[in-house]
Amino acid sequence: QIFVKTLTGKTITLEVEPSDTIENVKAKIQDKEGIPPDQQRLIFAGKQLEDGRTLSDYNIQKESTLHLVL
């Protein structure tokens, strides 16, 4: 699982696999929060994550925290 922290300070927990794409993660966030993926920007280690890449591409491991910017 990974954590996604929103600007409001809320933390969302997501069940993911390293092979999941960023697009996939955004879809999971939409399921939980109702935020359309095209409004979501995910930041990890100061980098904006691209939809077509996977979590493992960015070396995002379990218990990692991503930041969600709208």
Rank of each mutant, 00 (worst) to 15 (best):
Q1M: 14
Q1P: 09
Q1G: 05
Q1F: 15
I2W: 02
I2F: 04
I2H: 01
I2T: 02
I2M: 05
F3P: 01
F3S: 05
V4M: 02
V4D: 01
K5I: 15
T6C: 14
T6I: 12
L7N: 13
L7H: 15
L7I: 14
L7R: 10
T8A: 13
T8E: 11
T8D: 14
G9E: 04
K10R: 13
K10S: 07
T11Y: 09
I12S: 02
T13M: 10
T13C: 11
L14E: 00
L14V: 09
L14P: 00
E15Y: 13
E15L: 14
E15H: 12
E15S: 12
E15F: 13
E17Y: 10
E17C: 14
P18W: 15
D20P: 01
D20E: 09
T21D: 03
T21C: 05
T21K: 08
T21Y: 08
T21E: 03
T21M: 07
I22T: 04
I22A: 02
E23Q: 13
N24K: 12
N24A: 14
V25D: 00
K26L: 04
K26N: 01
K26D: 00
K26P: 00
A27L: 14
A27N: 12
K28W: 05
K28H: 05
K28V: 04
K28N: 04
I29V: 05
I29K: 00
I29G: 00
I29D: 00
Q30E: 10
Q30N: 09
D31I: 14
D31M: 14
D31N: 10
D31P: 02
K32V: 11
K32Y: 08
K32E: 07
K32L: 12
E33A: 11
E33V: 13
G34L: 05
G34I: 02
I35V: 08
P36G: 06
P37D: 04
P37I: 14
D38C: 15
D38K: 12
Q39C: 14
Q39G: 06
Q39I: 11
Q39P: 02
Q39T: 08
Q39E: 10
Q40Y: 14
Q40H: 04
Q40V: 10
Q40F: 15
L42S: 00
I43F: 15
I43G: 03
I43C: 15
F44P: 00
F44H: 06
A45N: 15
A45I: 06
A45W: 09
A45G: 12
G46D: 06
K47N: 10
K47M: 14
K47D: 07
L49D: 00
L49K: 00
E50M: 10
E50W: 05
E50I: 08
D51V: 06
D51F: 04
D51C: 06
G52K: 11
G52P: 07
G52W: 13
G52S: 12
R53C: 12
R53Q: 09
T54V: 06
T54Y: 06
T54Q: 07
T54E: 04
T54A: 06
L55E: 00
L55C: 06
L55H: 00
S56M: 13
S56V: 08
S56D: 09
D57P: 00
D57F: 15
D57N: 05
D57H: 13
Y58R: 01
Y58I: 03
Y58Q: 03
Y58L: 06
N59C: 10
N59F: 08
I60D: 01
I60P: 01
I60L: 04
I60S: 01
Q61V: 12
Q61T: 12
Q61N: 11
S64G: 06
S64W: 05
S64Q: 09
T65V: 14
T65Q: 06
L66N: 01
H67E: 12
L68E: 01
V69G: 06
V69M: 12
L70K: 07
L70C: 14
